[in-house]
Computed example of a mutant assay.
Amino acid sequence: MHGPALVNWLLALLAAGAGTSCLVRLRRSPCAGTPGGAHRVLSRESDAAEALMGLGMAVMAVTGATVPPAVWAGLFGLPAAAFLLAAAHAPNGRAHRLHHAVGALAMTYMALAMTAASGHAHHRAAALGLPLLTGALLLYFAAYTVWTGSRLLRTPAGTLALGTAGLPQACRLTMGIGMFAMLLTM
């Protein structure tokens, strides 16, 4: 990433914590054959995608452009294509799958922009990637973060929903903030 080393490490710790939390939820969630199976399948799919994104963000924040672009493209590009296909063919959970596709495509975009710029050391002061695309992704993740944060705070009694039911929302909020921060450092 382009930011100071301390910010990169803090972002890596935040993303790794969120990704690990998603892995733990994925491991503890029941199988799809139990009652409420369709909702559980989407929940497990979401936990898996968020674990991949969180742990991937942590690695990307620390390693930056040292990982070959083909690895990043495979790691995030293939899930993005799978989420786009799943969203196109299954109306149940379409918005959630599209969000995961946007996140995976954003990670692919950032990784490819970083690796393309690493060979051009004299352009290090310039912004990486395409400014219009980066701006659109910044707007998307800013709006997503505000929306997710408002959902986290909204409860019937007006109290914070930070118990076990609020943990997935807090994880999503963390991931949105992390994506916004990574895009901001481009």
Results as ranks from 00 to 15, higher is better:
residue 68 P to D: 14
residue 35 P to G: 10
residue 140 Y to P: 01
residue 131 P to V: 13
residue 91 P to I: 13
residue 41 V to I: 13
residue 44 R to E: 06
residue 147 W to Q: 15
residue 128 L to S: 03
residue 61 A to D: 02
residue 36 G to V: 05
residue 129 G to W: 01
residue 110 M to H: 03
residue 93 G to Y: 01
residue 59 V to D: 04
residue 166 G to Y: 07
residue 103 G to H: 00
residue 165 A to D: 13
residue 114 M to E: 08
residue 154 R to Y: 06
residue 141 F to Q: 01
residue 85 L to T: 13
residue 100 H to W: 02
residue 129 G to M: 04
residue 114 M to T: 02
residue 164 T to C: 06
residue 95 A to R: 14
residue 123 H to P: 00
residue 88 A to E: 09
residue 159 T to Y: 07
residue 42 L to T: 04
residue 34 T to I: 11
residue 98 L to P: 01
residue 151 R to D: 12
residue 71 V to S: 10
residue 39 H to R: 14
residue 153 L to E: 04
residue 40 R to D: 05
residue 44 R to H: 10
residue 114 M to Y: 04
residue 40 R to L: 12
residue 96 H to T: 11
residue 69 P to W: 11
residue 146 V to F: 05
residue 138 L to Q: 10
residue 86 A to E: 09
residue 118 S to R: 07
residue 129 G to S: 05
residue 147 W to I: 08
residue 152 L to V: 05
residue 38 A to K: 12
residue 102 V to R: 03
residue 52 L to K: 00
residue 39 H to N: 13
residue 79 P to K: 10
residue 81 A to Q: 14
residue 119 G to T: 07
residue 118 S to C: 08
residue 92 N to M: 09
residue 141 F to W: 07
residue 73 A to E: 08
residue 99 H to Y: 11
residue 99 H to P: 00
residue 53 M to P: 00
residue 149 G to C: 08
residue 93 G to E: 02
residue 104 A to C: 14
residue 36 G to I: 05
residue 142 A to G: 06
residue 90 A to L: 13
residue 123 H to N: 08
residue 136 A to R: 07
residue 145 T to Y: 03
residue 85 L to N: 14
residue 128 L to V: 02
residue 80 A to T: 06
residue 96 H to F: 04
residue 165 A to G: 08
residue 116 A to L: 12
residue 60 M to P: 00
residue 50 E to L: 02
residue 125 A to Q: 13
residue 101 A to F: 01
residue 74 G to M: 14
residue 119 G to W: 09
residue 138 L to N: 03
residue 136 A to S: 12
residue 145 T to N: 08
residue 83 F to R: 02
residue 151 R to G: 12
residue 111 A to F: 01
residue 96 H to N: 14
residue 154 R to S: 13
residue 78 L to Y: 13
residue 31 C to W: 04
residue 87 A to G: 05
residue 90 A to V: 09
residue 129 G to D: 03
residue 165 A to H: 07
residue 116 A to Y: 08
residue 76 F to V: 06
residue 61 A to Y: 01
residue 122 H to W: 10
residue 85 L to G: 13
residue 62 V to F: 03
residue 130 L to S: 13
residue 87 A to D: 03
residue 156 P to G: 15
residue 133 L to T: 11
residue 86 A to W: 07
residue 66 T to N: 09
residue 100 H to D: 05
residue 98 L to R: 05
residue 95 A to W: 07
residue 109 Y to A: 01
residue 68 P to R: 15
residue 157 A to C: 07
residue 59 V to A: 09
residue 63 T to L: 15
residue 80 A to Y: 02
residue 161 A to Y: 00
residue 153 L to A: 12
residue 35 P to Q: 11
residue 77 G to N: 15
residue 130 L to N: 15
residue 38 A to L: 10
residue 96 H to E: 15
residue 41 V to T: 10
residue 51 A to L: 05
residue 165 A to N: 12
residue 119 G to V: 05
residue 33 G to T: 12
residue 147 W to M: 14
residue 115 T to I: 06
residue 144 Y to F: 11
residue 35 P to D: 14
residue 151 R to S: 11
residue 134 T to W: 06
residue 137 L to Q: 03
residue 163 G to H: 11
residue 91 P to E: 15
